[in-house]
Nucleic acid binder design. Structure first.
Lengths: 203, 203
DNA sequence: CGGTTAACGGGACCCCTATCCCGTTAGTGG
DNA sequence: CCACTAACGGGATAGGGGTCCCGTTAACCG
């Protein structure tokens, strides 16, 4: 149930271990797409990945921790954003990437699974917090640059602005469960930008 | 597993049935507060409510449907909002009521449970959609009144404005899992209002 | 290339949860 | 007040997910 102790003996991160990890994480994502988080069992993951059930339990312990590990893996594949020199373009790129992530079957299913897992597992919640903290921080830089260029008021809080852009999209996805369209992404950008230009993001 | 057929024979909504329903829903909420949705089992609900396990299965069938029913019950207790004659006041009241709902142990636990249940059960998802659709519609009226008074631009979309106010709060609660404060509620109002005054909510 | 041992795999076991059967209780209508 | 039956309750059963034990495999190191 615990991650195996790394204190006694030597670690072996070599070939087989890495192969097993990849197979298990892949199988997990497949099952999430097909059955969602509620339909994810250690049993199925093991069978699908072609590994022993015991192995999955030993290394991950539970489905929430499995999903948390998957999220950490995806967090590392974070694609760097473009900096076009125009805030509206940059922020639209951000909103659209959120929309795509949420719409895309594979990534969307994983995101929703982590959100579900986070409600019952602190490790999954941490993975989620870390993931978004990093994403927000990355995108906040384009706001800072826009402030330097004079496109937005001095002192505009970049992190809060980025949050404000994706919030309506996730709100529709998870809370009100309304369809999320590209149109929603575009409107969120223009609305948030209107508030920002009016100085609403300056504390 | 199905709701018992109401076609053959007579329905008996009288004393005992209503008492059982109330006891079960109460027990459900208690368990949600203590253990969350993942720790909710039909067994515990039955035991806690002091009713037969069979009864709970017969009338609700699963925990997501139990939670969905609880949500419908709470939706009917929807408290009407005040209309102070000042948009900012009204919207602040809205944001604060969301903040309180999310912060309050009992209601907050239930809300998060329904959100979790909605990811794996269509009935729970429906309950959620219905609940929010109604709430949004109710509060949208204060926006319409403000437009009539000339406080906001003609054509402002009330529903979207209300969504925009609560979105950041739920976003923090469910997605980024950051703490939600009254300060967040206040900022959300002022930012959304700034965008609205700039005409960002006029299609 | 061969010994050492971390890591994996198969299968038996166990507990918890869902389901079923049937006897009992108590609303309902006359 | 009585017959009727919808709805409830207890207990026995079964199925599936999780745990454990121990033999096997293959990475690491000299």
């Amino acid at each position: 149930m615990e991650q195996p102790s790394r204190l006694a003996g030597t670690v072996r991160p070599g070939g087989r271990t890495a192969r097993v990890r990849a197979a298990v994480l892949d199988a997990t994502q497949d099952i999430l797409v097909e059955h969602g988080f509620h339909g994810l069992t250690m049993d199925q993951v093991a069978a699908r990945a072609g590994v022993g059930k015991t192995t999955v339990y030993r290394r991950w312990g539970s489905t929430p921790r499995l999903v948390a590990d998957l999220m950490k893996e995806l967090a590392n594949q974070s694609s760097p954003h473009a900096d076009t020199g125009d805030v509206e373009c940059d922020l639209l790129a951000n909103a659209v990437s959120v929309w795509e992530a949420v719409t895309d079957g594979r990534l969307g299913a994983t995101l929703q699974a982590v959100i579900a897992a986070a409600t019952c597992d602190e490790e999954a919640a941490d993975a989620l917090r870390t993931f978004f903290a990093r994403r927000i921080e990355e995108w906040a830089t384009v706001v800072d640059l826009a402030v330097k260029r004079g496109e937005l008021p001095e002192g505009t809080d970049g992190g809060e602005l980025i949050r404000a852009i994706s919030a309506p999209l996730y709100y529709r996805l998870v809370v009100t469960r309304e369809p999320v369209t590209r149109w929603d992404a575009e409107r969120s950008v223009s609305r948030t930008l209107a508030a920002a230009r009016a100085g609403a993001f300056v504390p």
